[in-house]
């Protein structure tokens, strides 16, 4: 029996309101059977300083990625992780995290590669929960292991590889990095460590829509009306044609992927997780520098 969606009025504007919950809904559903709350942060210690009661931590760096190959977990590894975190296949998994839910949406996207069906985001994430003075605990739950099935990861629907992007050139691409990264002035986020791309710039024809355009100051998502204005009216992303989003390593673009796929309801949106750290170091792929999207080259 699926857990009822958050029926708050402010969520009903979105294409898939069942993908979002408010902090209030979460506070009321912390003990609802079938709900597992997952915190996913950029800072690996943040969960340990205090987290939403009953929530488990999933670390993007050490738990979702393969430690050797640049790829995600296999079906077996994912099943093992789910068992360890006490997550069953039919559970409602509610994600929240720091930095306007970058890593929460990233974790949700990885869960979606494994077809985990009921995944939701806490609108506003960790910061909003704390700003509202809601309860935090340092108590770490010890969930009973589950019998999560081994599901083969589907990389064909929600995920794009470099080759897919080359095929896709000319169709809508969204570069969600900062304007300086887009233009090629820098290859990493302002105030972030240099993260290894050899060249600066963007993929030809990509629109520059920094992820933060979709977020309010309190970390919640902008209204559907505002989102439509930015993506559809201004950048022409109507959803009639497939879309690919990218950033530097795929985390900020997960935020945009979530917005396009679940809030605006665009069916065919993929996240290119190789992103600029791959593209900006790949041999003989086309790159455009400067603030204009540029043209698809005749050949490369």
């Amino acid at each position: 029996m699926p857990v009822a969606a958050d029926l708050s009025a402010e969520l009903q504007q979105y294409a898939h309101p069942e993908r979002l919950v408010s902090t209030q809904w979460l506070a009321e559903n912390l003990n609802t059977p079938g709900v597992v709350v997952v915190e996913s942060d950029e800072d690996i210690l943040l969960y340990d300083t205090g987290h939403i009661p009953g929530s488990v931590k999933i670390d993007w760096h050490t738990e979702l990625n393969d430690p050797v190959v640049r790829d995600y977990l296999t079906g077996e590894q994912f099943a093992e992780l789910m068992s360890k975190k006490g997550i069953s296949r039919d559970d409602t998994v509610v994600f929240y995290g720091d930095r306007s839910n970058w890593w929460a949406t990233y974790a949700l996207w990885v869960f979606s590669l494994f077809g985990h069906s009921d995944v939701r985001i806490v609108n506003g994430g960790r910061d909003k929960w704390i700003a509202e003075g809601r309860e935090l605990t340092k108590e770490v739950p010890a969930p009973a292991p589950t019998d999560y099935p081994v599901i083969e990861r589907d990389d064909s629907t929600l995920r794009a590889f470099k080759e897919d992007v080359l095929e896709h050139l000319g169709k809508p691409l969204v570069d969600v990095r900062s304007p300086e990264e887009y233009s090629g002035e820098r290859t990493h986020m302002p105030a972030y460590p240099e993260e290894g791309a050899l060249r600066g710039g963007h993929i030809p024809t990509a629109a520059s829509v920094p992820w933060s355009k979709a977020a309010n100051d309190d970390g919640t998502f902008k209204s559907l009306d505002e989102l439509q204005k930015i993506y559809r009216d201004y950048h022409g992303i109507t959803g009639d044609v497939p879309v690919i989003a990218y950033c530097r390593i795929g985390e900020r673009s997960s935020h945009t992927w979530f917005v396009l796929r679940h809030l605006m309801g665009i069916e065919d949106v993929r996240n290119y997780d190789g992103s600029w750290t791959e593209w900006g170091s790949a041999v003989r792929v086309p790159i455009v520098q400067g603030s204009e999207p540029g043209e698809v080259p005749a050949r490369w």
Partner: peptide, 14 residues
């Protein structure tokens, strides 16, 4: 190194 990504350790070097 295993627990904290290499990039974060670079912050400490900085």
């Amino acid at each position: 190194n295993e627990a904290v990504s290499f990039l974060r350790l670079r912050g400490m070097s900085g």
